[in-house]
């Protein structure tokens, strides 16, 4: 618990220093929805595609490994379903929606760098069958997310 506490305090503090270097504008995609933990989701009816944002991959740096869930696994909004490893850091990937994993991007096993090179397309991570479409309403749109990133960077 102590380390958890320490980590969260460190994080809120470190955010100030880590992000005050403005790396320019990361791209966002208009029709996607975004979570505060920097994942995007593309919703089409009950089907959702999930990945991490350009802003996220930019801060992580060279992605060297993506830990994928099994097809059929249950995911919960705001909870971790996998992890992305860069040279610099390990980060959880949280699901922006609840549901069941119906497909994972197997290409990431051999080419994890797709997450850097094409975060919104070839670097997608999982596809989910959404259990509660209302959850999507709690996510940010592209405009809100851009603002959110800007504030985080210049905090």
């Amino acid at each position: 618990m102590a380390s958890r506490l320490w980590a969260s305090k460190a994080a809120s503090y470190l955010k100030i220093s880590t992000f005050n270097f403005n790396r320019g504008f990361a791209s966002v995609v208009k029709d996607l929805k975004y979570a505060e933990s920097h994942e995007w989701v593309k919703v089409d009816g009950k089907s959702a595609t999930v990945g991490i944002t350009d802003h996220a991959q930019d801060h992580l740096g060279d992605v060297v490994y993506v830990e994928l869930p099994e097809v059929g696994a249950a995911v919960t909004q705001g909870s971790s379903f996998g992890a992305v490893e860069s040279v610099k850091a390990t980060s959880d990937i949280n699901s922006p929606v609840s549901g069941k994993v119906v497909e994972v991007n197997e290409e990431l096993s051999s080419s994890p760098g797709l997450v850097n090179g094409s975060p919104y397309e070839n670097g997608w991570i999982i596809k989910v069958e959404i259990s509660d479409t209302n959850e999507v309403n709690s996510l940010m749109d592209s405009e809100q997310y851009s603002k959110f990133c800007e504030e985080e960077d210049n905090h």
Partner: peptide, 25 residues
């Protein structure tokens, strides 16, 4: 203990800074 994406770029600071956890805290 590892962070979510929101802690991006901070893990290394933690990793490198373990000698000095108390100081950093």
């Amino acid at each position: 203990m590892r962070g979510g994406l929101w802690q991006l770029g901070q893990s290394i600071t933690r990793r490198l800074g373990q000698a000095d956890k108390k100081t950093i805290a």
